[in-house]
Design a protein around this nucleic acid. Structure first.
Lengths: 208, 208
DNA sequence: TGTACATCAGTGAACGCGCGTTCACTGATGTAC
DNA sequence: TGTACATCAGTGAACGCGCGTTCACTGATGTAC
């Protein structure tokens, strides 16, 4: 019989438990949502004792931060791709759609990202500090479209406005409330496009 | 001594425990935020045993619903007041500002309102079904400003867009990230006004 | 007006649960000689 | 190449906690006669 050896090939040392824990957390998020995301559940999902994560993360918050950080990187990548594929004049719109779609496809992760950011000094580095961040992509695209790069405050306000609008839409897009609109417009993407059009967000980029 | 009689004047029967529980919940929300809002904490705050609430609410969710519902009513009232006080051409802007200020002043309550609404068939009656709801106020004001009331889908989309943008701003306005912008612009209200201006939300109301 | 009794709205103890975290431990790994 | 030993990365049992909910109960209230 000796099943214990036959079945479990996993060695005592894991190899990259840190990675495995973050992955396990994301699996739980997708399957059961943010409220199910406990440290113990993550350890369980990774097939490891409840104490094991403490060799890789100081506490629960640090694990959550790691998950959120990975979320921001994924968002950056999605927006980079969207921007690259769009024609210049559509780039801002494409960024907005990509943002909302990311939130739609990863609602629990999206929530964790903002929950981790709340109460922090700033949104995490991943969002704003690096030159490649999603935030900077929006700002830079506005400049590419003709916004005055020397009007710093104006540029920041415009970026903020666009970001807020996208965030609001991202959070609400899933509400059942809107099902009939999606239907009448012929699908969710059409709905998002229509709302974005009504936002008219990007009219304010100045073409001097 | 007989302190027990001297100090506690509270009778065995409370009078209106339901009311008292909702008030206690709101007090906890304001003081400690949504994560501290447990049924036991509410009972404790109301000075009552942990089982008492079950004579007034089926379970925790039902209490939360009651709190959320009261939040929507407060929001309705705040927006009604803002609309009444503004000049016609500024009414939409005033509604937006009132909305965001409500969220800023009651952040925990605001959160509970949307958490209770998520996964529901629709946002609660308080938001959309009654003719006086905040949602209807926005839509009606758009019509008053010249939107075509027969273009139903368009009108709903415009209202949705405005609502989403306000929601996004409401959720993000408190981020420390924006402190320097608020400072440079001379206060939070100025900041909100500026972002709203950049949103240009209401350019899409048609003046036929 | 007084009394019996049903109903209502509380009490407080207890249930089982999952949580975050700590602890003493042990098996595996890597390095110095 | 072999061995002693420090270090690393796991285990699993235990801690105290607060939670939502249930239960048998009891004090207060209101109603029928």
């Amino acid at each position: 019989m000796r099943e214990s050896h036959a079945v479990e090939a996993r060695p005592y040392h894991h190899g990259d438990l840190r990675r495995a824990l973050v992955d396990a957390a994301r699996r739980i998020l997708e399957a059961e949502g943010p409220t199910a995301l406990s440290l113990r559940a993550v350890a369980r999902e990774a097939g490891v004792s409840p104490a094991a994560p403490y060799h890789h993360f100081k506490d629960k918050a640090e694990l959550l931060d790691a998950v959120a950080s990975e979320g921001w990187q994924m968002l950056d990548a999605a927006m980079a791709k969207a921007k690259a594929q769009a024609e210049t004049r559509n780039k801002l719109n494409a960024l907005g759609i990509a943002y909302v779609c990311f939130a739609r496809d990863n609602p629990a992760l999206y929530r964790v990202m903002y929950d981790a950011a709340r109460d922090k000094e700033a949104l995490p580095e991943d969002m704003q500090d690096s030159e490649d961040s999603a935030y900077c992509k929006v700002r830079n695209t506005m400049v590419e479209l003709g916004a005055d790069p020397t009007a710093t405050i104006d540029l920041e306000l415009a970026t903020t406005a666009a970001w807020c609008a996208a965030h609001g839409l991202a959070e609400m897009a899933g509400f059942k409330q809107f099902d009939h609109l999606k239907e009448e417009l012929g699908g969710e993407t059409a709905f998002l496009q229509a709302v974005f059009a009504h936002l008219g967000l990007f009219l304010h980029v100045r073409h001097d």
